[in-house]
């Protein structure tokens, strides 16, 4: 099984440890992983700002980089959702269609493709799971509180396999953190207020760490935690699932 590793641009630049953890995890489960060095970004920052029309070149580059893999895996629900919904290629339509079908967010890949039911990981802390909206409501990584439907959660199921880890309950289990791409600067006041409220929910329930499947949300929450001088830290779910 040849897996193409897709690392979001800001993770590549600011959170290399998340890329490393993702790669090591996939290797542990026997995947043959390749990281195309010429990758940049999925184009989401432009598209969500209203400039999907400018993402043509990004799309072509992405298609070229990832057309030769059985699966494409990425530690971000948001970037995966963008590719799934908006990747098009004028040069190679077949490849783009295949990529849209074969691109997976890390926890859904571990759950649905690799059928992981055991992990060798330990993380003896109280952990709050932040559901990133694009992963949850877009990729359906877990059930959404608005729907009258049976609960499930792919990230939670994996976290429960980690030794010593205690998942905490939250008052609002799937409220948006307010990152929202450029929203975090264009609507600074509301964005920060949303983030502060998320942080407070985790703190009130005694979290040592906030985790999630999207580093962008965690970066936003981390910025707030640090400013407030909080002891609570953020950690991407890949790092926890890979923790020894």
């Amino acid at each position: 099984m040849r897996v193409g590793l897709f690392i979001p641009c800001y993770v590549n630049q600011f959170y290399p440890q998340v890329g490393i953890a993702t790669l090591q995890l996939l290797e542990k489960f026997g995947c043959e992983v390749d990281y195309p060095l010429a990758q940049t970004c999925c184009g989401q920052p432009m598209a969500n700002s209203g400039y999907e029309s400018l993402t043509g070149n990004c799309n072509e580059l992405f298609t070229k980089n990832f057309s030769s893999f059985d699966y494409i895996v990425c530690p971000s629900g948001s970037c995966v959702l963008h590719i799934k919904e908006h990747l098009h290629s004028a040069k190679d339509r077949t490849a783009a269609t295949a990529i849209r079908r074969n691109v997976y967010e890390l926890t859904e890949f571990l759950t649905d493709v690799l059928n992981v039911d055991r992990l060798q990981a330990a993380f003896p802390y109280k952990v709050g799971l932040h559901q990133s909206c694009h992963g949850q409501r877009g990729l359906h990584l877990s059930q959404m509180s608005e729907l009258v439907a049976k609960p499930y959660s792919k990230p939670e199921r994996l976290l429960n396999m980690v030794e010593g880890l205690e998942l905490i309950e939250l008052d609002r289990k799937d409220e948006c953190c307010g990152f929202g791409g450029t929203f975090c600067v264009t609507e600074e006041a509301v964005s920060v207020k949303m983030g502060k409220d998320r942080v407070r929910d985790h703190e009130a329930h005694g979290a040592d760490y906030i985790t999630g499947a999207d580093m962008s949300c965690l970066m936003h929450l981390q910025g707030i935690l640090k400013r407030q001088g909080s002891k609570v830290q953020v950690k991407h779910i890949a790092e926890i699932l890979n923790a020894q």
């Binding site: 993770v11 590549n12 998340v18 490393i20 390749d34 983030g195 981390q222 400013r227």
Partner: peptide, 28 residues
């Protein structure tokens, strides 16, 4: 506007790409 009420992430020494080139052979 990011910095008004939030800290910036601390920039790491290396990007993931740089790490990968050093630590994995045969990067495509």
């Amino acid at each position: 506007p990011w910095y008004k009420q939030r800290e910036m992430p601390a920039p790491p020494e290396q990007s993931f790409t740089e790490w990968y080139k050093q630590n994995r052979k045969g990067g495509k």
